[in-house]
Design a protein around this nucleic acid. Structure first.
Lengths: 120, 120
DNA sequence: GCATGAACAGATTGTTCATTA
DNA sequence: TAATGAACAATCTGTTCATGC
């Protein structure tokens, strides 16, 4: 097992949550997460967001649709990729969340111990 | 900056502490840390221990001496490598600890937030 | 600048292998 | 088995580049 939780897994949790709340395309979620994590001094990199989304699709949790941003033609023709849960995507996601929670708790245990041991 | 704290940096903290307490060779420290982290389900890999020690030497914080284990000849001729702080090693270590603390706190902030956001 | 994606390079790490006593 | 070290392979990640609107 890896020492620490992977950034990819960490981001997947947040992306699943954002898709669940119907805020659903890559660039927007990236910007949202950037804002959300600014206080923690963490800037999620663009490449990881897209890689995480692609993996969630490959894993059969999400699927993609394409849409023209704005909807009204003549206004904005930018094409965006929206994400939605597949039929059994929610169950799969729940399973995945469970796995990540185990890993997250393990990491917190390790890091909290280090914090106590060296900087208490 | 990397997403999470590196295992190497994490281990260096513990190795510096063990050397400070005069428990000082690789294999022994490895076994000690294995025992210490058993409850957290973390098994520090042998290779990382040695790599971390080598780096601490390269960074001028520690230096090495060699010794025959047991001391008494005829009993055990296994050669072991002991580690000690250099002249200004303690100061350097203190500086390093400070840096790692910053990183550690950043990681804890991120992971605690995730824990709250998804599993509260 | 918004939006998506790929490519490339580097660092970290886990496993295995080698050596000696 | 204890002890140290190196080699190898895989993964992850950060940066940069490419494309289109």
């Amino acid at each position: 097992m890896a020492f620490m939780i992977a950034q990819r897994a960490f981001l997947k949790l947040y992306l699943l949550k954002l898709v669940e709340e119907h805020r659903g395309y890559g660039y927007q979620m990236l910007e949202e997460l950037k804002t959300e994590f600014a206080p923690q001094g963490y800037v999620p990199p663009q490449s990881e967001i897209y890689r995480a989304l692609h993996e969630l699709v490959q894993e059969g949790i999400l699927y993609r649709t394409k849409k023209l941003k704005g909807g009204d033609p003549g206004v904005d023709f930018q094409e965006i990729v929206l994400y939605h849960f597949t039929d059994n995507g929610m169950e799969k996601a729940q399973l995945y969340r469970k796995q990540v929670k185990t890993d997250l708790d393990r990491c917190l245990g390790i890091l909290n111990k280090a914090s106590r041991d060296h900087f208490s």
